[in-house]
Design a protein around this nucleic acid. Structure first.
Length: 324
DNA sequence: TGCAGTGTTGCTTC
DNA sequence: CGAAGCAACACTGC
């Protein structure tokens, strides 16, 4: 998933659905000696502690920091979830029907969204008691579907949470009110010899940008992904700053990007994948008007190319994106 | 059959 | 020190 707009979409959904919910039980596929991650529910010892620290408490609200979901509880504990590549949280009624590795299924077999094949890899289930309902009467669940099992789930003390090792290294939030061009430029310039694409993906520089939105922001600002940070002119950097904000806001407005596994809290797709100009558009004609056809100004048709930068698949228009 | 894949970390090499 | 490359995590889809 899950870059800033997708995580934000999920957090917005959580705040609509689970505020005030009491956590009455937790189930996880990871409760097996096979998994050994540290301070993560994948460690069976920690999973036991995880349950002890959260069961019985109520959810106050949810917040996003970089690509992390923070679920604040009323007992000074906070659940931290990083969905990594394929994780996504969904809210609905689930039942434990059999004893295979993925036993939890939506109670309603006719709920198309929750039964979407991308949503059926249920690894973690929170059983919730909603405000105003009698204990045990309503079976409502918050579940984590995570095909590749990369997601990280842990619990940390709410006090001083932003100084915890999980969050302290993160750079500024690009959509925060106080974020401005000066901060953007100062942060980016911490990697003067780095490639701009790699720098945008660095969570300690700016939080929340991933592979999709970095490609889209560079496409929009006409900058080649392999440009070295120190070579990019100030005027171009300003365009990049604006582009980053535009693509992230668009991502949120279109409900996130569901080109792959991401689904919202109801298990439904977002639509930003329908608006890509660069990401996974290899071989397509660039949609910038000047790149669409040959013309008298000697401009060529632009084709989207795919290269690898910093080990990540990268897409750009060879015509209009300038290498600095 | 093979490879690529929305993320992150840690290790190695230069 | 910093940048880059690679493996690991685990599984699906083209």
């Amino acid at each position: 998933m899950p870059e800033l707009p997708e995580v934000q979409t999920t957090v917005n959904g959580l705040n609509k659905k689970v505020k005030g919910a009491k956590i009455i039980d937790v189930w996880s596929i990871y409760n097996s000696p096979y998994y050994k991650s540290k301070e993560n529910i994948k460690d069976p010892k920690f999973f036991k502690e995880f349950k002890e620290r959260i069961i019985g408490s109520k959810i106050i609200n949810a917040e996003r920091r970089a690509k992390n979901i923070l679920i604040y509880l009323d007992n000074k504990e906070t659940i931290l979830i990083h969905m990594k590549m394929t994780g996504h949280l969904m809210f609905g009624e689930y039942t434990n029907t059999n004893k295979t590795n993925d036993p939890w299924k939506p109670t309603d077999p006719n709920n198309e969204a929750l039964n979407d094949p991308f949503n059926t890899h249920i690894r973690l289930v929170f059983s919730l008691e909603m405000p105003g309902t009698k204990k045990g009467v309503e079976k409502v669940n918050l579940v984590l579907s995570d095909t590749r099992k990369f997601a990280k789930v842990t619990v940390i003390k709410t006090d001083g949470i932003f100084h915890s090792p999980d969050l302290s290294h993160l750079g500024p939030e690009p959509l925060a009110k106080e974020f401005n061009f000066k901060i953007f430029k100062d942060q980016i310039n911490k990697k003067p010899n780095g490639k701009i694409k790699t720098t945008l993906l660095d969570q300690t520089i700016i939080a929340g940008i991933g592979n999709i939105y970095s490609d889209e922001a560079l496409w929009l600002s006409n900058i080649h992904p392999e440009s070295l940070v120190k070579n990019i002119l100030d005027t171009e950097l300003k365009k990049l700053f604006n582009s980053v904000l535009i693509v992230l806001k668009n991502g949120i407005d279109f409900g996130g990007d569901s080109m792959s596994d991401y689904r919202n809290i109801d298990g439904e797709r977002g639509s930003f994948q329908e608006r890509h100009n660069a990401y996974r558009k290899t071989g397509h004609i660039c949609s910038k008007p000047a790149c669409k056809k040959e013309n008298k100004l000697n401009l060529k048709i632009g084709i989207i190319k795919r290269i690898v930068v910093g080990g990540r698949s990268t897409h750009y228009c060879e015509n209009h994106q300038t290498k600095y």
